[in-house]
Write a protein that binds this DNA or RNA. Structure first.
Lengths: 146, 146
DNA sequence: TGATATATTGCGACTCAGTCTCAATATAAG
DNA sequence: CTTATATTGAGACTGAGTCGCAATATATCA
């Protein structure tokens, strides 16, 4: 499997765009993160390393990374759009705890057969799935039960 | 089953809030809609009937209707938060066509068993589910296939 | 009914995320 | 090295949504 950089470079070339120092740096930081993040958080992280970066560039690059199939919009917790890695990262269900905001991910295997049956029934070609379950994680459930 | 108005009135009373003409009117229009809508669309509809209504009141009332369990945030298509009825309206899957923006709804029956197994496995107490599938509806799929 | 307390409303100012414009700069190709 | 094109940063701008506050409506109780 190609690595992130390779995918991004090929994507940029295909569009006649350039793989610049700036984009290199953003890519690097984005893929050092292992949690969901938003543009502002990313911008703050980058600014810790350099002052040579504008918000606009961060937003523009996130956009490109989405189009390149490396990132995707994720569950939105706040007013801010949230992103997650998708390259080499199989589709999953998000379990969001309404009490502690923890996010658990599990794979789709359990629900996929049912989903595909339903898709077939209504003649729908699935391109993307977003499953979010809100509720109590085991810790918060235990606390509630005393 | 109680009707919407009854639910809303009881909710307001329980909070020491008042069921005013203004809230009555918003409730009325909200429940005359049968599609997803956003605050701005609702505001426009209301303004067609009267000029005596401010945006702030519309936003505040939508908030109350959500807390009362009558409305819920739905799939977000645009920059605007989108709402849908939930009272007396069972949970469902949203199938959103990426080409024509059609939204199809089907019930959860096919995926629920798998989902519950998974919830049990990770000890999660489900409070709410949001399933959105993006892809091509049968019409757009047919067009693509020529 | 009238007085009082409390909730509601409209208005407009404000916040905040995200986009856009544009001049200056960096990059790639020849 | 020259030229054409893409990129960048800065800050103005947009649009959704919130907030504070004074004026108004509503409910309670004497």
């Amino acid at each position: 499997m190609k690595d992130h950089e390779e995918v991004f470079v090929e994507f940029l070339q295909g569009r006649g765009l350039k793989y610049t120092r700036t984009r290199m740096m953003i890519l690097d930081i984005v893929f050092s993160l292992h949690e969901h993040f938003d543009a502002e958080q990313l911008y703050d992280l980058i600014r810790q390393r350099t002052r040579e970066m504008s918000r606009a560039t961060v937003y523009r690059t996130i956009q490109l990374l989405c189009e390149a199939g490396l990132l995707q919009q994720s569950v939105r917790f706040s007013a801010r759009e949230t992103y997650e890695h998708i390259y080499g990262h199989p589709k999953h269900i998000h379990w969001v705890c309404s009490k502690c905001d923890a996010v658990i991910e599990t794979d789709l295997a359990e629900v996929l057969p049912g989903l595909n049956r339903e898709a077939k029934r209504i003649c729908f070609r699935v391109e993307d799935t977003k499953f979010t379950i809100v509720g109590l994680c085991w810790k918060c459930k235990d606390i509630e039960n005393g």
